[in-house]
Amino acid sequence: RLIESLSQMLSMGFSDEGGWLTRLLQTKNYDIGAALDTIQ
């Protein structure tokens, strides 16, 4: 599930440099909407 969510976020133009996006998705239970809300 992480790989699916991460690949979708990467395709939106986000980077996972340093693993920050992986950690964010894990804390949000791989919910892309919740991750995007946090980023904004």
Rank of each mutant, 00 (worst) to 15 (best):
R1H: 10
R1I: 10
R1T: 13
L2S: 06
L2H: 06
L2M: 08
L2N: 05
I3Q: 15
I3G: 12
S5Q: 09
S5I: 14
S5W: 10
L6D: 00
L6G: 00
L6H: 00
L6F: 03
L6K: 01
S7F: 11
S7Q: 14
S7D: 11
S7K: 15
Q8A: 13
Q8M: 12
M9N: 02
M9S: 01
M9T: 00
L10H: 09
L10R: 11
L10T: 09
L10F: 08
S11E: 15
M12N: 06
M12G: 05
G13R: 00
G13M: 07
G13L: 09
G13E: 06
G13Q: 03
G13K: 00
F14K: 00
S15R: 06
S15M: 10
S15L: 10
S15W: 06
D16S: 00
D16I: 07
D16E: 03
E17G: 06
E17M: 09
E17I: 12
E17H: 10
E17A: 09
E17L: 09
E17F: 10
E17D: 12
E17K: 06
G18P: 02
G19Y: 08
G19D: 06
W20F: 06
W20I: 04
W20E: 05
W20P: 00
L21S: 00
L21D: 01
L21I: 06
L21H: 01
L21K: 00
T22R: 06
T22N: 04
T22G: 04
T22E: 07
R23P: 01
R23V: 09
L24T: 01
L24H: 03
L24W: 05
L24A: 02
L25Y: 00
L25P: 01
L25N: 01
Q26S: 07
Q26Y: 06
T27L: 15
T27F: 10
T27G: 11
K28T: 15
K28Y: 13
N29R: 05
N29G: 12
N29K: 08
N29M: 09
N29W: 09
N29Q: 09
Y30F: 13
D31G: 01
D31H: 05
D31E: 08
I32R: 02
I32Q: 04
I32M: 06
I32E: 05
G33V: 14
G33P: 11
G33Y: 13
G33S: 14
G33D: 15
A34Y: 05
A34M: 10
A34I: 08
D37Y: 06
D37H: 12
T38W: 15
T38I: 13
I39A: 04
Q40G: 10
Q40E: 11
Q40D: 09
